[in-house]
Design a protein around this nucleic acid. Structure first.
Lengths: 125, 125
DNA sequence: TGCACCAGGTACCTATTCGAAACCACAGTA
DNA sequence: TACTGTGGTTTCGAATAGGTACCTGGTGCA
């Protein structure tokens, strides 16, 4: 355990941020917490998500071991995606972020309004 | 409190993710937890950060009420940036994410290696 | 006089990203 | 025969992010 330094470039923790930064990834991860979902089910569930981005996102998530893919030899070959235990722990952590957002969003919005309304009074030279 | 739905597009919590997605923002926020820092101090502290991105990042952070800006009328006019109480709570939450990354990074890397080494055996048709 | 440093702003240019859409093979249905 | 739905891949083009470089403008220093 080399005690990763987040301030060094090329830090592995940066990768986690990149994954969380991907809005589709967190949405997919969130949907999968309730159980396995098929490809086109996901596509229809998340508005604005193209099949390209979905397959790309799922590939990344699978590569990171956050979701698992299972192809079922049904009539037209359906593919089931489910969240892994590891993915579940990340989803829980991201959820903490969601809680923060819900808790403090009003403060942030208030600050933004004050800022956008020209905070000339805030200039404390 | 409308119980924000993260699955609806244009959700405010999305904004929080976008902010966390900005690697420079989290790094700046992290540096400011130790105390006020000046503009060029930040720039020198974070390798690879251009002044354009720094000023852009600081502006966003200030707009969101996460950091506060204070211009000091010293010899060549220095500007001091410090973290706000609100910013500190976000930094703490993001820190949880960092902890997750440090804890599980090896699992993720292992998974990636297995994936990249051609997981033909994983095809379970 | 010329250079450097402070805190940025601005213009340009490139690389990545991402959506739209076409294409794939297969099988059931009308 | 033609169309639908399954799970994707590929290509194209537009938008955006972000780095480089140059600008202000005041001041101390050589």
């Amino acid at each position: 355990m080399p005690a990763w330094n987040a301030y060094a470039s090329a830090c592995p923790t940066r990768m986690v941020l990149d994954r969380v930064a991907d809005k589709w990834a967190v949405l997919v991860l969130g949907l999968l917490t309730d159980g396995p979902v098929r490809f086109n089910q996901l596509r229809r569930a998340i508005d604005g998500l193209s099949q390209k981005m979905l397959s790309q996102t799922l590939k990344s998530l699978e590569r990171d071991g956050l979701v698992s893919r299972r192809a079922v030899a049904t009539v037209p070959v359906t593919v089931e995606y489910s969240i892994t235990p590891l993915g579940r722990t990340l989803a829980a952590t991201v959820d903490a972020l969601r809680v923060w957002a819900e808790t403090h969003i009003e403060e942030v919005l208030t600050s933004q309004e004050r800022y956008d309304a020209g905070r000339r009074d805030a200039v404390s030279v």
